[in-house]
């Protein structure tokens, strides 16, 4: 890909309400490959750019399940199979004593899976991304909101898309170099 290839077009807004309205209109206009960037989480914005659901909680559940099973199995295996000690005929599988470790490892597994899944699904860490090529984009972590239409969209046409974005009454429209 050559150095000046186009990643897309980006429009800048002042408030979450403006970028949300703009994202909805962009989607109504038929664009599908869009993304929005904001300094705060904006309710409804992810849905407006086509995000449907996240599988993070599935991973949390699986991680927790795996952690819990590991904890219980480890205690049971150590005391019943690997190193059984008969203490006054008490049951080897004294399961109430395994509960604290089972519980702690459930939480540990769930938390690790949550964080790893969240980062992996977000594609982070990711040191380079074309949006960082726009100078004004540094303000997206302070108080500006951005809406981006990617050049891969089937309706993308530099002139028409630019005109469309300008019609959304933004602060400015920028081209994003690849």
């Amino acid at each position: 890909m050559n150095r000046n290839a186009m990643y897309g077009l980006m429009a800048e807004f002042d408030s979450p309400e403006e970028v949300l309205a703009a994202a909805r209109r962009t989607r109504e206009a038929g664009y599908r490959q869009i993304d929005a960037f904001s300094p705060i989480p904006v309710e409804g914005l992810a849905e407006a750019v086509g995000f449907e659901w996240t599988s993070v909680p599935v991973f949390t559940f699986l991680g927790g399940l795996l952690g819990g099973c590991t904890g219980f199995f480890m205690c049971w295996y150590a005391n019943v199979i690997s190193f059984p000690l008969d203490i006054g005929g008490k049951p080897l599988n004294s399961w109430p004593a395994w509960i604290p470790i089972t519980f702690e490892l459930t939480i540990l597994g769930g938390a690790l899976a949550t964080v790893v899944a969240m980062l992996a699904l977000n594609g982070l860490p990711n040191p380079y991304h074309p949006v960082f090529n726009v100078d004004r984009f540094a303000l997206s972590t302070t108080d500006k909101f951005f809406l981006c239409i990617k050049s891969g969209d089937k309706n993308f046409d530099l002139q028409r898309t630019k005109a469309f974005l300008e019609g959304l009454n933004p602060h400015g429209v920028f081209e994003i170099e690849e």
Binding site: A23, D35, A36, F37, S38, P39, P41, V42, L45, A46, A48, V49, F51, T54, V56, M118, L121, N122, L124, P125, N126, P127, Y128, H129, V131, F132, F137, S140, T141
Partner: peptide, 11 residues
Amino acid sequence: GWRGSAAHWAR
């Protein structure tokens, strides 16, 4: 490389 993308925020 956090960039505040809407889908990122949701997750």
